[in-house]
């Protein structure tokens, strides 16, 4: 702090408080809506304070859902989301750390080509190759399966680069000492490299879990059976009513449930989250 200007400090606080309110507003409104009954929206004004139906609404959605919308209970969709998010996060970490290990600690013909193949995935987000990727997944019979939901999303140049960076900063003497100590490549990987990359893996896991949980387009494409709907992709089906008004209180309860797990991860693992975010952008 260079100088003490109470006026400026007060202004900064004001800006921040305003920012916090604006950022929180939609979630507050959603939460409030999710605690009211269906009739509370008929009058046209939306309530600003929580109502008495919190437990009732959430229990109904988690347990039975809205069968008229063709979606399974929210609890089931959350389970699907969890499976997808965990598979994507763990799968990405596993295949990325292996390939980073291969690229950093070995010299072999076509190593450069392999590196570029991985690099190119950075330039091919699923959004730009939607139709052909869908055709491949359909051809492999992976529609409506957990494998189809997760495997196409677990190749990642970002994670590979992150581990490559981590490995490159490890002192050369470590692998030399390990070789003299009689450790072969896989033993070195398991005994030295993996334990030393633990925090990087945890940080990456936080980012990838959020990434996986929040997938929308992909699950929308590859799931036609409601058994495999994920909550983020399913929420729109709840809100889409052909005739009449959506059941706002139930849609909003679902929205709150959909953001709860990833938001909790960010808040409770803020340090790892920030580390992961910064590292993946290097």
């Amino acid at each position: 702090m260079i100088e003490n200007r109470p006026g400026l400090n007060a202004l900064a606080h004001l800006v921040l408080i305003l920012g916090v309110v604006v950022v929180a507003l939609p979630v507050w409104v959603a939460f409030v809506a999710s605690t009211h009954g269906p009739t509370d929206f008929m009058s046209g004004t939306v309530p600003m304070w929580p109502g008495p139906h919190l437990v009732e609404n959430y229990a109904k959605m988690l347990d039975t859902g809205l069968s008229t919308s063709g979606t399974p209970p929210v609890g089931w969709m959350m389970f699907n989301s969890l499976v997808m998010a965990l598979s994507i996060a763990l799968g990405k970490i596993a295949i990325s750390i292996l390939s980073a290990f291969a690229i950093v600690y070995f010299r072999f013909p076509l190593r450069g080509l392999a590196f570029w193949c991985i690099f190119v995935t950075l330039m091919l987000p699923v959004e730009v190759r939607i139709v052909p990727t869908f055709q491949v997944v359909a051809g492999l019979g992976l529609l409506n399966s957990y494998a189809g939901l997760s495997i196409p999303l677990i190749a990642s140049a970002t994670a590979t680069f992150l581990f490559r960076q981590v490995f490159l900063t490890m002192p050369d003497e470590l692998v030399e000492a390990a070789r003299i100590d009689g450790a072969g490549p896989m033993k070195f990987f398991r005994d030295i490299l993996l334990p030393l990359s633990r925090t990087n893996m945890a940080a990456l896991f936080v980012i990838l879990f959020i990434y996986g949980w929040n997938q929308y387009l992909w699950p929308l494409l590859v799931t036609t059976s409601s058994d495999y709907y994920t909550i983020v992709a399913g929420i729109k089906r709840l809100a889409d009513v052909v005739d009449g008004l959506p059941q706002w209180h139930l849609v909003m309860a679902t929205a709150v449930l959909a953001m709860l797990p990833p938001v909790a991860v960010v808040i409770f693992m803020q340090k790892l989250f920030v580390k992961g975010l910064v590292e993946t952008e290097k």
């Binding site: 950022v23 959603a30 929308y216 959909a258 990833p262 938001v263 991860v265």
Partner: peptide
């Protein structure tokens, strides 16, 4: 802490929230 959490909200959910508001 109070400002970073919307990162974790799915774009689809963000859309629904503002659509409602």
């Amino acid at each position: 802490t109070l400002l970073v959490w919307p990162y974790a909200v799915a774009p689809a959910v963000a859309g629904i929230l503002w659509w409602f508001i």
